[in-house]
Amino acid sequence: MGITSAAMNHLTEGQLKAVVAHEYGHLANKDTLHFTLFNAGFAALTAALLPLYIIGFFLSLIFAFFEGFLGGSNATVTTGLFKLFFKMVNLAQVQYFRIGFYFVNFGSRDFEYRADEVAAKAGYGQELLSFFYNLERENIESRKGFLALLASTHPYTAYRIENIESFISREPAQIDI
């Protein structure tokens, strides 16, 4: 974690404290560990696709052997089946990566909401709101639609503002500390 010189020059002391409290929230919630485990699990599942390639290779060899054994002078059927199989595996892998990418980013956005709530619990909710209002006013982010949100590691600022306002407005008895 670090504070940039731009943050030091442009944020109020309360906003800086809120940002540090937010970053502390990531530490307290062990978000780095969870994010690492999330990605490691995704990588392990990705390795599960390797046997499909190996099976396809051996099936292609078997088909080529039988095609040659049955008198085929060229392996057009085997080549066609081989190409079709690997195209299907590659398509499945691309879709798997796309879904996994969105899933991991969904978890990352949840980490941001939780870290915002830690900052609010620490007493910096109004300062954090002030920071996000400034971001919203500066129009730093550009909304590009639902798929852009899915691809983002952070929620839109407006959503974070809504979440913090909702969190702050709850009765103190409803907030788990």
Rank of each mutant, 00 (worst) to 15 (best):
L33P: 00
L81K: 07
F63P: 00
L16R: 04
F66D: 04
G107K: 01
G56I: 02
K30W: 14
E13Y: 06
A6V: 12
A64R: 06
G25K: 03
S142T: 15
R160G: 04
S130Q: 06
V104I: 13
S152A: 08
F131A: 09
T4D: 09
N90D: 15
I175R: 00
F132I: 11
P51R: 08
L52D: 05
F63M: 10
N139D: 12
S152R: 01
M8A: 15
L135H: 01
Q95L: 14
L81I: 12
K144F: 10
F97N: 12
R143E: 07
S169F: 06
F58M: 11
I164K: 02
E171T: 15
F69M: 13
G123F: 07
T157S: 05
Y113L: 12
F63D: 05
P155I: 07
E136S: 11
Y124H: 03
V104E: 02
N134P: 03
E67S: 04
I99P: 02
F101E: 07
P172H: 07
A18C: 07
G2P: 04
D116I: 03
M1Q: 03
S5Q: 09
F167M: 07
N163D: 08
Y102C: 08
L147Y: 00
L149D: 06
K83E: 14
A48C: 11
E67H: 02
L128D: 04
S5V: 13
K30D: 09
A6F: 13
F146H: 13
L49S: 02
L150S: 04
L84M: 12
F101W: 10
G14R: 06
A173S: 13
L147P: 00
R137D: 10
I3H: 00
L150P: 04
P172L: 15
G68M: 11
A75W: 05
K17Y: 00
A6D: 14
F82Q: 09
I168L: 11
E112Y: 03
E165Y: 06
L128T: 03
H26Q: 09
A6W: 10
K17M: 09
L33K: 08
L129E: 03
F35A: 15
E117C: 07
L70M: 15
F35M: 14
A115F: 03
A173W: 05
G100A: 06
A151Q: 08
E23D: 07
I62P: 01
